[in-house]
Simulated scan of single mutants.
Amino acid sequence: MTTSTRTSRELEQLIAGVPASDGAGVQLQRVLTQDLQKRLDPFLMLDEFRSDNPGDYLAGFPDHPHRGFETVTYMLAGKMRHFDNKGNEGLLVSGGAQWMTAGSGLVHSELPEQEDGLMHGFQLWVNLPAQNKMIDPGYQDLTPDQLPTYTSESGAQVTVLAGVSEGVEGPVQRPDTHPLYIDVHLSEGTSHWQDIPAGHNAFVYVYEGEISTGAEGRKVGFRRMGILNNASEATGIQLTALKEAKLLIIAGQPLREPIAQWGPFVMNTHEELEQAVRDFRAGKF
């Protein structure tokens, strides 16, 4: 969609997530996989977990380590308790989020605090620049009332976790990756325009319904990721709900640094990965 001030990005590629199992057997859909890390830099992974079968999620994610990046957990339904070896503890509830900086390393757990009902949410991994990979770990626990929500002029319901949408600033801001993370709810026929900084890598993920994107009107359906192009003239993305839709819009400034990953460790070199393993085994996290 082009006006005197707006030129929309267009859909570059559609991605279908792959079934996966993580933690102690939690069933999930891995949407952003390792082969997309360079294209969607600074984002490393996006998982959606969604089930009303306790057998799919009850074992949760027992103690496990991280180093070198940040994790963002956004809960739509259910309750998850987290602990770490630094003495931090918190409860993620429906509509809340947690932005965790693993930095130099920590060991934590994420365990469901429910025995039945729907467990639904997302975990996004955001890379840290080389200069910050060994900073002190930290948490930013965000209750539902700390995530600003507004209704746009078009009628879209928008929740802002990070970045800015129509002047509404999310609680998380980062100087290196400048992430945008918003949750948009659209009734059928409703549109939403979202500014996206030039140079940011960006994608949408539709977790309910179906949308069309840009002037070309290309569709992104249920549980599909749409990678948006990086057209230099584009100032944002135009979205329209073909049926009632709920979706994430995620964008960030790429770091353009080497990525070396081994499981829960993300560094810049193989040598740094080996050091991470040695430090973890030596109890230095």
Rank of each mutant, 00 (worst) to 15 (best):
Y150G: 08
E169N: 12
S165P: 11
L161H: 00
N127W: 03
D116C: 07
T149L: 04
V168T: 15
S165E: 09
G170E: 02
P144Y: 00
T143A: 13
A162H: 06
G117C: 08
P144D: 04
E153P: 14
P148Y: 01
M119T: 06
Q123L: 07
S165A: 14
V126S: 00
D136V: 15
T159I: 03
G163A: 06
A156G: 11
D145S: 14
E169Q: 15
M119C: 10
L124F: 14
T143Y: 08
Y150V: 06
T159R: 09
E153C: 02
V164D: 13
Q114T: 13
P148L: 01
D145K: 04
A156F: 01
G167T: 08
L161D: 02
Q140C: 06
A162D: 10
V160R: 01
G117Q: 08
G163Y: 00
G121D: 05
T159E: 03
Q140Y: 09
L128Y: 04
E166C: 05
S152D: 15
L124D: 05
G117W: 08
W125D: 00
E113M: 15
Q157I: 09
A130P: 02
Y139G: 07
A130G: 14
M119N: 06
Q131E: 15
G117I: 04
L118I: 08
Y139N: 14
I135Q: 10
G167M: 05
I135L: 13
F122C: 10
P137Y: 04
M119G: 04
G170L: 00
T159V: 05
G138L: 02
Q146V: 13
V164N: 11
H120R: 06
L118Q: 15
T143V: 08
N132L: 12
G117N: 08
G170N: 02
E153K: 10
A130S: 15
L142M: 12
S165I: 02
E115M: 12
E169K: 15
S152R: 09
Q157F: 02
Q131R: 12
S152E: 13
A156T: 06
D145T: 11
T149I: 11
Q131V: 15
N127I: 12
E169R: 14
D116V: 00
D145A: 09
Q123K: 09
M119Q: 12
P137E: 05
L147H: 05
A156S: 14
T159Y: 00
G138R: 04
G167W: 08
M134A: 11
G170F: 00
Q146R: 13
S152M: 07
T143M: 09
Q131K: 13
V168S: 07
G167R: 06
L118E: 14
T143D: 14
F122W: 08
S165T: 06
Q157Y: 01
G167Y: 05
G138N: 11
D141S: 11
V164G: 03
V158S: 00
M119I: 09
D116A: 11
S152W: 03
N132I: 04
G138E: 04
L142E: 05
A156M: 05
P137A: 07
Q157H: 13
S154H: 07
G155L: 01
L147F: 08
D145N: 13
T149E: 15
L161M: 02
M134C: 12
E153W: 03
G121I: 10
Q114G: 12
N132Y: 07
K133T: 01
P137Q: 07
Q131M: 10
E166G: 12
V164R: 12
S152Q: 12
